[in-house]
Write a protein that binds this DNA or RNA. Structure first.
Length: 415
RNA sequence: CGGGGUAUGGUGUAAUGGCAGCACGCAUGCUUUGGGAGCAUGUAGUCCCAGUUCAAAUCUGGGUACCCCGACCA
């Protein structure tokens, strides 16, 4: 992408109504635009990062046997009346049409996916079944805050598993813990994201959250540093020691909940009468698990964790572009050629081809936007027949000829 | 939903009752090019509705929006 053609430009100052690091940097970098409190537009750079996250998640969900579907956001009241959540879920957006018929804007999709599954599940041979979607959710947050971390409309992956018995559900639930670990590892926050025991509701002792430790978090967890698991503050009164090793010396940390997995058992299949016939012809309830990740929140969490005073520092797998190519030479011809060659080699590159900008301004923009690699073409590099390459996260600058450059960038290209 | 705060060009800000100013951005021209360039000429603003006053960005009332703390948060 030629930066001279890019829809957005950077801003020197953050808008005064954004306080959180992620919102300030996303706004300054032109990654997102706030429409209203808790509701953001993803602009080209932000949308690319979101898509990178989406692709990581999709790959892992498909690897876990998930089949992707897309369910509606506009949902009939009747489905929510069946589970009782029309009246009890107080962050449910309710809308009505001209005739007075009422609808919910989906905050989650158990009320839709269970009746849907009922149309196709009738035998033990149909189980297990794994369905997921990546889609906008709506929740009436009375106090949206912290940029992308808590919104009224947000992009979420929700995954639902259907099982014939508890053993199968439990085994799959354990498997999903590993799948989730992989996702957060790829997203660049694996080392500071901890599986956390949280309230399990009425059907199981615990649910499990994936909590990323950062001062910007709004959750409080108690971490067992040796087991690398945590306990959410919400259950610390019942569970004040490590559930794995019994350690009582837990360390209090602030954290962001980037994922949650939940054992639903028969909570929703009972409500909708979702059952199957076993090999003996007996009617049995289907057991369910659900597994969520907020993509926007994850994106915000990545920035909260990976930034410095100059800007964002994107992990390679979620960066909008791998490389930021900057021309500060008098002519664009050398940089133009390199841009074409990088693209031809499959390297994702944002090319600062803008005229009339000072080098300082281009470097400052590059630091703000935070692509993993910066490649500079200048009079000095042209004279040396080299290119300058620098990692955003590191100070060292090195000169490389074209082959070296392509090798470095290619080995980080997952194309 | 309780409490607190804020609202001035696209962004950040100044002006406490008396000419709405500055910086960045943007536009045009010339110069400039390794860490947020220079000069010149332009562009663009007082959240909304009432009220007080000779006069309101400024005072009063109402509304709206946004931010922060708390509550809430399958």
């Amino acid at each position: 992408m030629r930066q001279s053609q890019l829809f957005t430009r950077t801003q020197k100052d953050a808008p005064k109504d954004e306080v959180s690091i992620n919102a300030q940097m996303l706004s300054r970098g032109g990654f997102t635009d706030k429409l209203m409190a808790g509701v953001y537009t993803y602009l080209p750079l932000g949308f690319r990062a979101l898509k990178k996250i989406e692709n990581i998640i999709r790959e892992e969900m498909e690897g876990a046997g998930g089949q992707e579907i897309l369910m509606p956001s506009l949902q009939p009241k009747e489905n929510w009346a069946v589970t009782g959540r029309w009246d009890t879920m107080d962050d449910l957006y309710k809308v009505a049409d001209k005739s007075g018929k009422e609808f919910a804007l989906g905050p989650t999709h158990e009320e839709i996916v269970v009746p849907l599954a009922k149309k196709f599940i009738s035998s033990y041979k149909d189980l297990p079944l794994y369905l997921f979607q990546i889609q906008n959710k709506f929740r009436m947050e009375l106090r949206a805050k912290s940029g992308l971390l808590r919104g009224k409309e947000f992009f979420m992956k929700d995954f639902y598993s259907f099982h014939k018995d508890e053993a199968d559900l439990d085994a799959y639930y354990e498997k999903m813990k590993t799948v989730y670990r992989n996702i957060f590892e790829k997203a660049g926050i694996g080392d500071i994201t901890y599986i956390t025991f949280a309230s399990g509701g009425s059907f199981s002792k615990y649910s499990h959250e994936f909590q990323t430790v950062t001062a910007a978090g709004e959750d409080t967890i108690y971490l067992c540093e040796s087991c690398r698991v945590a306990v959410n503050k919400e259950i610390i009164n019942e569970q004040n020691y490590c559930p794995v090793c019994g350690n009582k010396n837990l360390v209090e940390k602030r954290s962001i909940e980037v994922g949650n997995i939940f054992n639903l058992k028969t909570r929703f299949s009972d409500a909708f009468g979702l059952s199957y016939k076993d090999a003996e012809g007996r009617v049995c309830p289907v057991l369910m698990g659900c597994y969520g990740i907020g993509l926007g929140r994850l994106l915000g969490a990545i920035i909260e964790v990976h930034h410095d005073e100059k800007g964002m520092i994107w992990p390679e797998q979620v960066a909008p572009y791998l490389t930021h190519l900057i021309n500060i030479a008098n002519s664009r011809s050398v940089a133009d050629n390199l841009y074409d060659e990088l693209k031809a080699a499959g390297v994702e590159v944002l090319y600062d081809d803008r005229e009339g900008k000072s080098p300082g301004e281009k470097f400052a923009d590059s630091d703000l936007l935070g692509m993993p690699y910066r490649v500079v073409v200048s009079e000095k590099t042209i004279a040396a027949s080299k290119y300058e390459i620098k990692k955003r996260a590191e100070q060292d600058v090195k000169l490389a000829d074209k082959n070296e450059l392509l090798n470095i960038l290619r080995q980080n290209t997952n194309a």
